[in-house]
Amino acid sequence: MSRGRLRARLGGLRRRTVLLWCAAVLALAGGMVFLFYYSAAFTVQDVQSEGAGDEVAARAVELAQIPHGRPLARVSEARVSERVLEDRRIAGVEVERDWPSAVRLVVQEREPAVALLGEGATWLADASGVVFDEVEEVEDDLPVIALRGDPTGLDRETVTGLVDLWQLRPDDEELEGELGAPQVDGDGSIEMEVGVVTLLWGPPVENEKKWNVVTALMGQETIDPQGGLEMTIDVRLPDAPVVTGLPEGTG
């Protein structure tokens, strides 16, 4: 056999070998796709939830809506997470495949930072301002803010501002009276009362500066929350506070 024919035969053999390897790889890939995505070998037989209390854990499994018998590889983590997060008590969730036949939901519950009491109901809110759960009882160490309105109608920015406002409030001795329940209007502006003195607060921003202004004004002899003369302290612009209702001859 000539050298040219030998090279041609070897070249053809190499091409057939490559083609056979390619066919084998494609067959293997196809088999793997079928095995994991379409066969009954690795399907969901159990959905578990951990990291949360019993009620929230059970609700997470219910919201996940992962049917038994679905191939594990076809479980969409993004869609499952989106459904589980419909429960506002849940701050986050990780969807993990537990081969060969289970899905694990690792749930992170929201931590309450404040309780909001209004219109006969008590709601918990977290530090990010999400109002997430109505409760019958409040833990002893959780601050409670009484509102003249529905807590669920508040936006997140207002809730976080309220938490800050309430945490910074002076004690009753500094205010010379007991601070009443904040009233939050639809635009997020706040009004409170100390005895006969009404505080026009505006939105819950610059809270520390506003409290400093209020306590300074309350220390004046002409302003008496326990007196008989109704007054208003407007600190919506804390750098230019306005007091109305002062006795005649003062100002």
Rank of each mutant, 00 (worst) to 15 (best):
G227M: 06
L179H: 08
V196N: 04
V196A: 10
L179A: 12
V197A: 04
V163N: 07
S189T: 15
D187G: 03
P203H: 10
G202T: 11
P143V: 13
L168K: 13
L199G: 07
Q226K: 14
V214Y: 05
A146K: 12
E191R: 13
T152S: 14
L154M: 04
E176C: 09
I223H: 01
D172M: 04
G219F: 14
I223C: 02
E178Q: 09
V144R: 14
L200C: 09
P204G: 13
R148W: 13
I190T: 06
G227A: 06
E174V: 07
G202D: 03
V138G: 05
V197K: 00
N212E: 11
G219T: 06
Q167K: 07
G149K: 04
L162C: 08
P151D: 03
E157W: 12
T158H: 03
L229A: 09
D164S: 15
M218L: 11
M231K: 07
D140T: 15
V138H: 05
T158W: 06
V159I: 14
A146L: 05
T158F: 09
G149H: 02
V214L: 03
E178A: 08
L154D: 01
R169Q: 13
N207F: 06
I190W: 05
P151S: 10
V205Q: 12
I190K: 06
A146G: 15
A181Y: 01
G188P: 00
M231C: 06
E193G: 14
W201G: 07
L199Y: 10
L147T: 10
W211P: 01
E174M: 11
V197E: 06
M231G: 03
E191C: 02
D171S: 11
G161F: 01
T158V: 15
V214C: 05
D172F: 02
V184R: 01
L199A: 05
V138W: 03
D140E: 15
P204F: 02
E230M: 09
G153L: 08
S189Y: 10
R156V: 06
Q220V: 10
V163Q: 13
R169F: 11
R156E: 13
G186V: 00
Q220W: 04
R169S: 12
P151I: 09
T158G: 03
E157S: 15
V214M: 02
E178V: 11
V159E: 07
N207K: 07
T198Y: 12
T222C: 06
E206Q: 11
G149Y: 03
D185P: 01
I190S: 03
E178M: 15
W166A: 13
V184D: 00
I145T: 04
L179G: 02
L199R: 04
N212W: 01
D155K: 09
G186R: 09
P225G: 08
V138M: 05
N212G: 14
I190R: 07
K209M: 12
N207H: 08
E176Y: 05
G188M: 00
G228M: 10
